[in-house]
């Protein structure tokens, strides 16, 4: 029916259904994005009524901003460790919780709950745990590891962030892995058992290859969330002690709104966007090649 009509009729029908969403998407994503790119060529400070055009000078500033690149490297390190840990923990949880354990749905719900708590609240809860509960326990039971607040030491504060991130996202990724594991056809596993394959062989040769789509999604999600981490960063460590755990998003935000260097901050955000886009697209592209059919 649709093909019989002219162009205008088809367009009208499409606009009816996609128009509102398209408008919202354009208004809150595309227009600000393009306007943001325009701002990178100006020296606007966020409030003044005038600003002048400065060309690509802001981009030069980005490449000269050593703190930006330092926090980018720190973020890379953070992303690498969290992606590995989140997915390892999530897969293990999913594997255990699909093996027919008693009360496994309860456990699944339990592990998923941290993900329902917002990053800011979570950060404050863990801040209390790290700087009060652990210190108290450390003093009572004289455990040297917990004698001082983890958040007061640059390395430990970094690991505190990783622990909280893994705790928060492992449950979410677990749900995706559970779905993936349940979709592995039972008949081929049964056939493999009859052929005498043991548990590890089945896991390595059949389950893991068939789970590649789940891994792609989970790694993509954890990569992207890792790079964009901000709420946890600000509520758990505030980038401290002395800026040693300041992730790149936080640096960009502070550049724009604290140092009031809107142009440079925007330019850094754009550079960050490009870098993250390249990394995640490459990840999806290359891991798609690993997909197999049952």
């Amino acid at each position: 029916m649709i093909t019989e009509k002219g162009l205008w009729n088809r367009l009208r029908l499409r606009l009816l259904f996609t128009g509102p969403t398209l408008f919202a998407f354009l208004a809150v994503m595309i227009v600000p994005f393009l306007y943001g790119i325009y701002l990178t060529f100006t020296n606007w400070d966020g409030i003044s009524t005038t600003s002048s055009f400065v060309g690509v000078q802001n981009y030069f500033s980005v490449f000269q901003d050593t703190v930006f690149w330092k926090s980018f490297l720190l973020t890379l390190k953070y992303v690498f460790i969290t992606v590995v840990l989140i997915n390892a923990v999530a897969f293990l949880l999913a594997y255990v919780l699909t093996s027919g354990l008693k009360g496994q749905s309860l456990f699944r719900a339990g592990f998923f709950i941290p993900n329902l708590v917002g990053g800011i609240v979570l950060g404050f809860v863990w801040q209390f745990i790290f700087s009060n509960v652990f210190v108290f326990l450390g003093k009572e039971l004289s455990i040297p590891l917990f004698s001082g607040s983890w958040l007061a030491d640059p390395d430990k504060a970094f690991w505190a962030m990783i622990i909280v991130t893994v705790w928060q996202y492992a449950g979410y990724m677990m749900v995706i892995y559970v779905a993936g594991l349940m979709n592995v056809p039972k008949d081929i596993l049964e056939a493999a058992s009859i052929d005498g394959a043991n548990l590890t062989t089945k896991l390595r040769k059949m389950v893991l290859p068939l789970m590649v789509p789940s891994f792609i999604v989970c790694i993509f999600l954890s990569l992207q969330r890792g790079f964009m981490v901000y709420d946890l960063n600000i509520s758990l460590t505030k980038g401290g002690p002395f800026k040693s755990t300041e992730m790149v998003s936080m640096h960009v935000y502070e550049k724009a709104f604290l140092s009031r260097d809107y142009g440079v901050g925007q330019a850094e955000a754009f550079v960050l966007f490009l870098l993250v886009a390249i990394i995640t697209i490459a990840q999806v592209y290359f891991s798609k090649k690993l997909e197999v059919e049952a």
Partner: peptide
Amino acid sequence: LPADHWAKIGASMQKYLAGE
């Protein structure tokens, strides 16, 4: 003072206070 003075210098002072 410049708007980011407290944050930047504050971080340096924390480093000094901690003996780092």
